[in-house]
Design a protein around this nucleic acid. Structure first.
Length: 197
DNA sequence: TCTGTCAAATAGGACA
DNA sequence: TGTCCTATTTGACAGA
């Protein structure tokens, strides 16, 4: 189980500051724009100063929300495609590579799993809705057939449409030839029991 | 400026 | 004990 990492980290265009290390002088600020600078600050790893800040009593500073850079997101997505969970070593390696805390990697994967599960659930929901609609329609058709058959039984002279009927060999149910889709409903791939008839 | 959406982060319980 | 899941909170951001 290998985590995805780019061939060369030199491709990365991460604008992240490392604790105790300033990669760019303050004069560079103008080139990136205010938002970039904000992103840079938020993405930095927690420094010992931060820890001190937190450990000091008093009110905790409002938490700054990290926004992952495009590159970070892309790499995380790539890793997620490889594997939906990470072992501690992989987490550590990815964190180091992206210059994030392992906890942030962990949280990202948790949220990502939740998102994909939600997406999956939504898709299943849509499918079940459609299936329900199709079953309802079949149910109506069958009710109509029952009525017609009852009418046939009551008075043979009124049974003009009997010639267009066939018997389903599997369930021995009478179906109309005009609705082959009902006689042989499309097979669904849903993993449910008792799907047919 | 307000509001809705997205996603990072937190809390707390379950499980191996 | 560490990891996962789920629910929830919260901050950033975009569009009306």
């Amino acid at each position: 189980m290998a985590i995805f990492l780019p061939e060369s980290s030199s491709n990365l265009d991460l604008t992240i500051s490392v604790p105790g290390f300033s990669s760019s002088p303050p004069s560079d600020e103008g080139s990136g724009g205010g938002r970039e600078q904000l992103k840079l600050d938020m993405n930095r790893l927690p420094s010992s100063e931060d820890d001190e800040e937190l450990s000091h009593g008093g009110s905790a500073p409002p938490r700054k929300k990290l926004r992952l850079t495009r590159e970070q997101s892309r790499l995380l997505e790539d890793s997620f495609r490889q594997n939906h969970t990470l072992n501690p070593k992989q987490k550590e390696a990815l964190a180091k590579h992206l210059m994030l805390r392992p906890r942030q990697i962990e949280v990202w994967f948790q949220n990502r799993r939740a998102r994909s599960k939600l997406k999956q659930t939504e898709m299943e929901c849509e499918y079940l809705k459609r299936w329900f609609g199709s079953l309802t329609e079949q149910n109506h058709m069958l009710h109509r057939e029952v009525e017609e058959l009852r009418a046939m039984k009551a008075g043979p002279s009124t049974a003009t449409s009997a010639s267009s009927r066939t018997m389903c060999p599997r369930c021995e149910r009478v179906t109309t030839a005009a609705s082959p889709s009902l006689a042989a409903p499309a097979k669904k791939t849903l993993p449910l029991q008792d799907r047919e008839h």
